[in-house]
Design a protein around this nucleic acid. Structure first.
Lengths: 208, 208
DNA sequence: GTCTATAAAAGGATAGAC
DNA sequence: GTCTATCCTTTTATAGAC
């Protein structure tokens, strides 16, 4: 019957409600597009009226902000797990990482747009929500460096290369694998360029 | 004083008004974002009231459709001009093309989003507006083939590579050139991968 | 071809009762 | 913490006069 446990339970309940709201917003974003998220529909999905959302979020953009932070936190976690133990061979490791990133990005267009593109004109992530994205890139640099990708420009090139394949996949063949199948070739190209050791991931093939 | 000249003038005037409307929509899209285009503001910019727009376009999405078609037509024209006479050396030609594409894409975020990303949830381009994008890719395949990039997968890789650099530039360094500077390196990497002849575009540099 | 008037809906956000 | 009530704005689109 002490006070603190009650406070804890209240805080937990509050946090759970916040999560419910954000999850409802994700559902709408996935189904109807990021810009189609409305407070009314979010509220309806959690069994509330829209004004009640203001108890938990200061504005609609605050919900987008929570979504942004959550998405990058998830990606950071995926990154940390995937990079905790990588294959020794640099090329194999590069491919494993790329496939992880690719699959995460391609699994959810709305999430990808919120994380990496500027779809909501007046939305700017807060420093707290931005932090996990910085941490992710930091971790990526660290791992790439250990694989022999030690030039900053090469890291930029790697990010662009994988990101470009994701983009093409989402834009031109959503749900398919036309660009995902290019990952081994792309990683070989990249590894060859940097002179990374090891046998090629795929047998070199001629055009005819 | 014949009839047909009058008809012609009317048709010209009508077409000019359509162009004015689309140009006003572009201005708003560039200034406030693609999804912030509203009929009221478009109308205001051309000195009309919003209902009058329906004389020229059946719906708001019809305006987006005209914008989409116009953007790809411009890009097709830029592509045709740039590829009409290319440097003989494959690597130099690749770089020249990439720089043209990159600069066109990076010059206008709203245009890039409308052309290549799915920012407006319920917008689907009409076949007529989609046509110039098909023609552009066709022309690209043709030119790349002549440069020695004759595998379909290599074309996909090229498109992703340049597109990824554009994406990174727009997302992480808008207005800058951090990723544009990587174009020569990226083209060398790509050319090396395909065994294209010619000296590298940039001197090979070590990491230390 | 453009206007006024207006529909009809939906949007984000606030005030104040409970 | 959630509600009702409501504000005020904005949105796309239509009807009908001129």
């Amino acid at each position: 019957m002490s006070v603190l446990p009650n406070r804890d339970r209240q805080a937990e309940r509050r946090e759970a409600t916040r999560r419910e709201i954000v999850e409802a917003a994700w559902e709408i974003a996935r189904a109807e597009g990021l810009s189609s998220v409305t407070l009314r529909e979010v509220a309806a999905r959690v069994g509330m009226r829209s004004p009640s959302l203001y108890t938990h979020f200061a504005s609609k953009n605050a919900i987008y902000d929570a979504m942004f932070g959550e998405a990058w936190s998830e990606f950071l976690q995926v990154t940390l797990e995937r990079t905790a133990s990588l294959p020794k061979a640099p090329r194999v490791a590069l491919l494993a990482m790329s496939e992880t990133f690719f699959d995460f990005a391609v699994a959810d267009l709305a999430r990808f747009q919120l994380m990496n593109q500027r779809v909501i004109p007046d939305f700017q992530p807060s420093p707290e929500s931005y932090a996990p994205s910085v941490a992710t890139l930091e971790r990526l640099r660290e791992v790439l460096d250990r694989l022999g990708v030690d030039q900053p420009e090469a890291v930029d090139l790697y990010v662009s290369l994988v990101g470009g394949l994701v983009d093409s996949q989402l834009a031109n063949d959503p749900g398919g694998d036309r660009w995902r199948r290019l990952l081994p070739r792309a990683m070989d190209m990249f590894a060859d360029h940097l002179g990374l050791p090891g046998p090629p991931l795929r047998s070199t093939q001629r055009s005819t």
